[in-house]
Design a protein around this nucleic acid. Sequence first.
DNA 1: AGTTATCTCCGCCTCTAGTCGGAGGTATGT
DNA 2: ACATACCTCCGACTAGAGGCGGAGATAACT
Lengths: 208, 208
Amino acid sequence: MIRVVVIDDHDVVRKGVIAYLSTEEDLDIVGEASSGYEGAALVKEKKPDVVLMDLIMENGTGIEATEEIMKTESCKIIILTSYYDDEKVFPALEAGAFSYMLKTSSADEIADAIRKAALGQNVIEPKVATKMMTRFRQDRKLHEELTKRELEVLKCVGEGMTNQEISDALYIGVKTVKTHVSNILSKLEVQDRTQAAVYAHRNGLLKG
Amino acid sequence: MIRVVVIDDHDVVRKGVIAYLSTEEDLDIVGEASSGYEGAALVKEKKPDVVLMDLIMENGTGIEATEEIMKTESCKIIILTSYYDDEKVFPALEAGAFSYMLKTSSADEIADAIRKAALGQNVIEPKVATKMMTRFRQDRKLHEELTKRELEVLKCVGEGMTNQEISDALYIGVKTVKTHVSNILSKLEVQDRTQAAVYAHRNGLLKG
DNA sequence: AGTTATCTCCGCCTCTAGTCGGAGGTATGT
DNA sequence: ACATACCTCCGACTAGAGGCGGAGATAACT
């Protein structure tokens, strides 16, 4: 029997998945949770073999919960979500997710992914796999080289602020802002602040 | 008996919702579909009282399907989705959606929304309702004022291109690009190209 | 025929942005 | 004690961005 925990704050999704998986003889649903925090605690208590995890949740994202679980547990975490954009996929994989499924998958595919995870085989959605390929080919997180202060400045640039406005907001001189911006541009390998702003948005460095 | 059709390309969600609603005595699931096109045809055939519709689907979005159905049918369409951002909510309501539910809702809430829809009562999620209020207060989509050409230029600006690069890409003079950019800035009510680029990204005018 | 909208282009002007090459201060770790 | 990284700031320079005012061409609607 493969012990499974389902974490998803979408009531209908969670109930639906559980209802479906319960009909499978070799799967045992040992717990369910509707938030990241709750889920992480539940996994530590129940020690399941496999965790089905949604990404977007009210209290504690799936990414945070995945990180938390992977610190101490050895279970396989399968991300089950509707999203397959860069900002969601890569942080999830880096956090220690084992497989990445989309909610467009059929119930059978999900059951199959659970069995494979229990055997140590990853299952990555083709669409997500394509993303990974292009990612690993060249790109790395350029913005990880940024210092704290530079990241603050970049966020301001990403909001469309001018150097003067940034200097007022951060209580530093305009010259200093220019220095930071220049360093940001070279670290991100872009030519001007507009490209830096685009970079910030594409890499999810801002809220909206 | 309230006749219901469920349209959702997420297998687990559709099956889950149906499994849940089937236990309700007064609800009769008369059909299900996994794409917008299929769903629209099904609704025209089955003539249900209420339709549960997902927004993001492979073939034919929920918005297109909603528009198509509302042309000829008189049923109540309840949007059931994970999204509540502007780009999804307003087109759906404009297309003729009757209620707007989030997948974070409990199964009981959804069953309740179906009964209310059958009685002619709308159910709008609080989060979505808030969006609607702010929307009707003042905001309109500024970029709808943009001409075709200006939109093309804005997309280039959103990619981080300079005026020179845009002029090369669109085969027009740099002076012309400047004129377009100036017009874009005033129409979007922003001060510079960086803010315009941010606007473009926030309003989903670009792919990534 | 006249109006309106759109796309195209020009010159002149100002100002922000960005580069280059410095410099001093404060942590941190070796 | 020394090196390194980070944050701060300076002056001088160049180039791109953006405002202002104007203009010709086409197409569509009245």
